[in-house]
Simulated scan of single mutants.
Amino acid sequence: MSRGDSKTVEATRRRLTGKQADTVEKLTRAAVEVLSREGFAGMTIRMVATAAGVGTATAYTYFSSKEHLVAEIFWRRLRTTDSPASDDADPTVRVVAELRSIALLVADEQELSGAVNSALLGRDPDVEHLRVRIGAEIRKRISRALGEDPDPEVVESLELLYAGALVRAGMGYESYSDIADRLERSALLLLK
């Protein structure tokens, strides 16, 4: 199925018809608005449902928790954001561009970026499912950037570098923009 197929969209919990996909889209848009106003601690599924113009029970049909909803938002952004187009012959340049792009995915939205970290660290089974999908996508992008037959230990090291950098940003030690710069420097050290 193509990303642009509006008739059926795969969601975390099930495949969706066009109408259901529209409802999920309303909920994810409303969640970003509620997050920016209330923060993650203040956000509830009920608030998001109200902002989206749907019933709370309907919202819970699609999202088991606010963590699940926020993780879905990040997954959708990652999935629909193209890898940086880099024809550079140097795999290091391609990897750095990829890591920077992912690190900055929600950097301009302070409440969302903090919520993503909190959500992805949760134990909700639906979040776990998304965490696996997100991790697989990041691994695929790093591996593709490294080129043919990448060393699995290098791929894993870059994944750990990325995850640690984003946790550090999520803890408030540095902004996501600063973390993207540090991530770049660290990746360059690792890939030397």
Rank of each mutant, 00 (worst) to 15 (best):
V54N: 02
T92P: 08
Y60F: 14
M43P: 03
K66I: 05
D126T: 15
V32W: 00
A119S: 11
E111H: 11
A49N: 03
R77L: 14
A71K: 00
R133E: 13
L130W: 07
D22C: 05
T23N: 06
A21D: 03
E137M: 12
A115W: 08
G55N: 00
A89T: 14
T80N: 15
R131A: 10
G18L: 08
A59Y: 04
V34Y: 01
A21T: 02
L27V: 02
G39A: 01
L78P: 07
A30H: 08
G42H: 03
A31F: 05
E38M: 13
D22T: 08
A51V: 05
R29A: 15
V95G: 04
H129C: 13
E33T: 09
A107M: 06
I134T: 09
A57E: 10
V70S: 12
H68T: 02
R100Y: 07
L99F: 03
A31I: 00
V48H: 04
L105P: 03
I142V: 12
S65Q: 07
H129M: 13
V70K: 00
V48S: 10
L69Q: 04
E38K: 09
T23S: 02
E109F: 14
R37E: 12
S101V: 06
D88K: 02
R133L: 15
R139H: 13
M43W: 08
E111W: 10
I142M: 07
P125I: 13
N117Q: 15
R123N: 14
L99V: 02
R29I: 14
D108Q: 09
G42S: 01
I73H: 05
S143K: 01
G39T: 01
H129T: 12
V70N: 05
G135Q: 06
E72T: 15
I142W: 08
T50F: 11
M43V: 10
S118P: 01
T61M: 08
E109C: 12
E33Y: 13
D90P: 00
T58G: 01
A85Q: 13
V32S: 12
M47G: 10
A85T: 14
R131D: 14
A51Q: 12
E128M: 14
T58S: 09
T50R: 12
A51G: 08
A31N: 12
L78F: 01
T61H: 13
V116C: 06
T80A: 07
Y62M: 07
V24M: 05
A51R: 15
